[in-house]
Structure formats: C-alpha cells, structure tokens
Simulated assay, not measured.
Amino acid sequence: MHIAYKFRIYPNPEQQILITKTLGACRFIWNQMLSDKIAHYESTKEMLYNTPARYKEAFSFLNEVDSLALANRQLHLERAFKSFFSKQTSFPNFQARKKDYGYTTNIVNGNIKVLDGFIKLPKLGLVKLKKHRHIPEDYKLRSVTVSKSKTGKYYISILLDYETVISPCEVKTTIGLDFDMTNFYVDSEGNRYAYPESILLDQQKLRRLQSSLSRRYQPNKKQKDQSKNYFKQQHKVAILHERITNKRLDFLHKLSDSIAKTSDSVSIETLDLKQMATSNKHYAKQISRFGWYKFITLLEYKLNRLGKTLVKIDKWYPSSKMCSRCGHLKTELKLSERIYSCEHCRQNMDRDYNAAVNIRNKGLELLKVENLA
C-alpha cells in the first residue's frame, strides 16, 4: 500500500532559486508538449509521442533542473490524455504561472534520503526539514513532490510503500450520515456536527480583506503593474486563505478519523452537490466552504485502511421522503418542512435525522447485515 507524509522544508536562497527554476521548467515542458501534440494532431490526425529530451537542445535551461521532474511531468500529461479519452476528465489545459503544480522526482541510486532534520534531494542537496512525525523504518521511499504555497512556504510530500494485511471487519457498529446545509451533517444517532466557528469567523474576515483588495485594484493597469499596497493586501488574503484551508483540513481529518475508529461501516448519500450549488447562491457558498467531497475521500481511505466499509447510497434513494419507522413514502415534501410527519404511523421527527436513519438502514441492507438499531 501507499501512504504520503507531508513536511515543511526550509531551502536556502540558492535552493529556492533552483526550485523556482524547476517549477518553471516543468510548467514549460507541459505547455510545450501539449501545444505540439495539439498542432501535430490538427495537421496529421495522429497522436504525437514526444519526450522532454527532444526539447533540451533547443532550450538549454532544461538541463539545469532535475530530469526526473521533467519525465514525471510527461507521465502526468499522458495520464491526463488517457483520462480524457476514457471520458473521465475534460481535455488537458495549459498550466498558468500563477498556480503552483509542484514537481515530482523519484528515488534512483539513493539520490533521495530522509536524514535527521534534513532531506537529500536531486540537484538541491541537503534541505532543512521539519520532521514532525515519525516514518517507520520498514516503509520504503518511492518518490517526493516539492511544492510552494502562495504565501512563500515550501513543502515536500514523501510517498512511501509498505506491506500490510487488511482483514475485513465484522459490522457491529454502523452509522448513517446526511449532509446538512446549515451545520455539516446529521447522523443516524440524532447528533448534529456544526462547522467550526473559528473558520466561519475567518471567512467573514476574508470577505472584508477581499473587498479591500478589490478597491486597491486599478483596472487601467496590468496585474504586474499594480501598486505596492495592492500586492501587500493580496499577500494578506493569501495568508488568510491558507489558514482557512489548514483549519478546514484539520477539522475534516480529525472528524473522519474519529468516525473511522468508532464505526465498522458508514453509509452516506452520493449527492450531486454541483447541481445543488447552481440552484441557489447560498448553497454554493456553503458547499464550497464545507469541503464535503474532501471529507468523504478522507473517510473512505481511513475506513478501508482498517478493513471497514463506506457504503455509498444512490442519490435517487428517497431518504428524506421515506418514514424511517414504517417505510411509508411521501409523494411530496417541501424543503421548508423541517419536521417529517408520517401520515401512516403518525411519527414526527426531524427531517434530517429521519433521512440519516434511512441512509443507515439502506447501507445495512446493501451490506446484507441485519439492522443493528
């Protein structure tokens, strides 16, 4: 199995320059190869299989950076085309300078080593590393990815291989989760988990900073020719964006980890959040803030690592319209009706709690497990 550890690194000025050059070279090789592929296909209707080595003679600066970083960028481009032809993603886009895509390099003949307080990297040599967590000795290093945030911080993600035997876990405890637009989710036990208030306060502050940034923008000038005050404010916005992202990720990691440890199976509904976002501006803001898809991704891999199961219920399953006690199905249920009142068994309960119970019961049905409630 694979696992990745992310650490912060502190390169010296010379190393920072080389990292910037490598990021630029990787972006250049992606755009150049993509452009040549498009032009070749338009003229011959055939796919061009080009490599970074073809461009090194014409563009000598490519020789200054790690060759494996360029080779990995080629593999990423080929993978993007395969995903496009299999209709999984859209056509590959050109990469912009303002966005950091990082660069990946592989271990060859001991060119990468994690030492005490340092990491040895190709071309860069020893780079100061803040190793805040232990890496088991039996884990084998596979590759590293170097990236730079918009606030000027440098990070490295270390991909490791390890061997383990995962035994399927017997389902003794289970839970159903229903996405809640007001909070975060409601579970089948009736608990509501609200989003951290500190993140909501930071988002209000972000709104004020962005408004201030917008006032500093001079439309008659290019982006690079804006005033110093504009770039200072832009840096403040980037710092707050990063803080919100880190807080959100910390919240999602801790919450998904807690659920994975306490439940043998988790059932969720595969909602079409993009469609929900387009139907209402308020929904779009809430969905983008919460990071529900990220939460599901984290929860799934943590459950699988423990031999547990994440059950995804079809989005057309009428979890909100069905009574969790008798199974009676309502033909119509307005969004404003927050209490589910069953006409058949006279049960009255919170709408989201009722949906979470139905999701849990459907998950048990798909797992062919008797209801544990």
Rank of each mutant, 00 (worst) to 15 (best):
L48A: 13
Q210H: 05
Y301F: 01
G291R: 04
S320K: 10
K123E: 15
G190C: 04
D138H: 09
K123G: 08
A277W: 02
N183D: 15
S279A: 11
G176T: 02
Y10V: 01
E269N: 12
L124K: 09
R338T: 07
F94C: 12
D178G: 00
I158S: 08
R142V: 15
L121K: 03
D36I: 01
T151N: 01
C342H: 10
G307V: 02
L255W: 11
F231W: 10
P11R: 08
L240N: 02
F61V: 03
K130Q: 14
S319M: 07
E46N: 06
Q15T: 12
H235Q: 14
F84M: 11
V65W: 00
S341I: 13
N31W: 01
D178W: 01
E242C: 07
G110C: 04
A96K: 12
L201G: 13
I268L: 06
L200V: 14
K302P: 13
F7R: 04
I244L: 07
K228G: 06
V146N: 01
K334M: 00
S263T: 02
N280C: 10
P122K: 05
D202L: 05
Y49A: 12
G125Y: 01
L34Q: 04
K221H: 05
F85Y: 14
I313G: 07
S256A: 07
K228F: 14
V266M: 04
